[in-house]
Design a protein around this nucleic acid. Structure first.
Lengths: 192, 192, 192, 192
DNA sequence: TATGAATGAGTGTTCATTCAT
DNA sequence: GATGAATGAACACTCATTCAT
């Protein structure tokens, strides 16, 4: 019985994850989820308190991981961003393990969280990263905007990789490429 | 009367544009628009068949311009993308005039089109651009994905600029910077 | 097993009584009861056919006692209500033993029975009592209404006492005071 | 058109007042109201923001009047409650005009407000009145309880009158009788 | 042209009750 | 006897759209 319950619970999580990924939180109704799982709408509430909790069940560990990653990265370890080789390696490993462990959760909070507590997560993240990039750029009036674009691009690139690569090795290779691309690009705009 | 009618029609477009930009298509109700314009909800339907048509009126010319830009770019004119200086200049001019002419329409279809026929425009666009970038990259299994990322980043960067810069000159300068950043980055991944 | 069963049955009655008294019939859910008793919701239906029957189990003997009291009081025994000292004593004893025996059941049917067959019990009761009081009043057009008010007040007063006094002696004393008040008015209770 | 709207609005208020009076706030659904008025449920929200606002529209002026009455009565004017003849007259007039003006609103907030902001109004009121009565009673351990009962009876008596008398003169006469009864007891109303 | 009244389908959520195990 | 999964009807509320005036 417990098995059955767990199995259905798992199926609800699975199907709602699909729907949330495809349509976003707002545009996915409890009825849609119930239909996909082939149970009554009311029964969903046997497994999850409400729609928001269902979403958070799918995303909280990803959000937690992301928060920790940011906290550690801001605690000074990665202070010399673009020029240290060490930076790339450490950052890469930190990010990689999070990406691999929390792939869909991250996609949900970064892309499909409208209507939830993660609604403004992506811009917040981007702003944090931009803060770190800006001082590296030549001092001009557009430095902040360009840093924002780069940060946004970095985040966007990671999302693309998550969407298109499954196996750890592949993700790792692509992340390397992405960072190459970004660091070379950033050099073009650096303080000489 | 025609003048009055046109003027009201224009005000509806203006206010709904604001709302759609701020809140997105889905989360903007006809009631909100009617309130902003200070007319009745029903009267909106005298000017626009329904909510979707109102949105399309705001976005179709931008979408058309975008389509044409892509068509022309694919017709062979910009075939040698990254190595010709000419590419940068032409592309820049084409894009710039579109951006300046259709700023808000482009933002709407690229960012706030959930629930409309433009729901999947951005990924489609990105795929088209990626197609053009891919052959320039070193032949590896990730070439397509990297091209997609670059394309996505390019699009994302442009959107950022549109959101943060108003005057043509500023937009032009930022676009230059963005392209510098991207071409230098791309070089890192090019066929040697 | 029978003992166990009876014991559980008793606990259900106990906890649901608490909840019904605090929250009323309508606003007490079977889930709340199950949680308080620490059994499953479904198991409640092994002991009681449905929510209504559970409520009736808690209240039927009180309702029965009340009915009998009224029947006997109407059978002529207490015909000369206000002037016979005997009336006060007899009534007091009859009522007192019912109150003490069926305290919570009475509170439930008089105060928390919305949604059950006792929904209209209190007004019915009041009407019955009023019938007996009316002939004692001076013949005027408002006699019936005044009798109803007195009856309602009497019932209300008893409910108050039930809620605020536990020990038989206390209840008895308060009931005496209440009847004094009703027969002689506030003056009876004033500081001299 | 404005007339139609006002007329329907009035009918909604009328029918919902009936339902709220009969069944209480909680147990009256928007669907019931819509059915009685013979309109769609959605249309109710054209006239009232939500169920609570509809209820408050029916009750707020009564609640306001009651609040003012209490404030004025507490401001010291009626300090010598039971012994001054003046008290009875003034109180009677104040209460009478409120009762006549806000009959159904008062019934709703005193009897049928479960689930609204008036849920605890009656016990609060009763406590306020009891505070004034208690010092007049002989000092015994049951004084507070008896004062509460009297206060509750007074309120209950007024409610009975409201339910059973329509014309001002009748209400006035009954209120007089009620106060007599409370001050002098049943004897005051007996056949001589 | 303009209004705003009206509808009906849809939203998330609750809950008494049933039933297979 | 006991569980808890499951249902279905009900709840308050929203909103794009239609339509009589």
């Amino acid at each position: 019985m417990q098995v059955l319950k767990d199995e259905l619970r798992h199926r609800i999580l699975l199907e709602s994850e699909h729907l949330f990924l495809q349509r976003g939180y707002d545009r996915t109704s409890m009825q849609m989820i119930a239909d996909k799982v082939n149970i009554s709408k009311g029964n969903l509430y046997h497994y999850f308190k409400n729609k928001e909790e269902l979403f958070y069940e799918l995303t909280d560990s990803a959000a937690e991981g992301l928060k920790n990653l940011i906290l550690r990265s801001r605690s000074g370890r990665f202070s010399n961003i673009a020029d240290s080789r060490e930076f790339q390696l450490l950052l890469q490993e930190e990010i990689l393990s999070l990406l691999l462990a929390e792939k869909y959760g991250l996609l949900l909070i970064m892309e499909q969280g409208k209507g939830t507590r993660y609604e403004h997560l992506r811009p917040t993240m981007v702003a944090l990263i931009a803060e770190q990039i800006e001082p590296l750029l030549a001092d001009e009036e557009n430095a902040l905007l360009l840093a924002q674009i780069m940060a946004d691009n970095l985040v966007g690139g990671i999302i693309q990789i998550l969407k298109n690569r499954v196996r750890p090795r592949e993700v790792r290779v692509c992340m390397n490429r992405l960072l190459d691309y970004h660091t070379k690009g950033i050099h073009a705009l650096r303080v000489e």
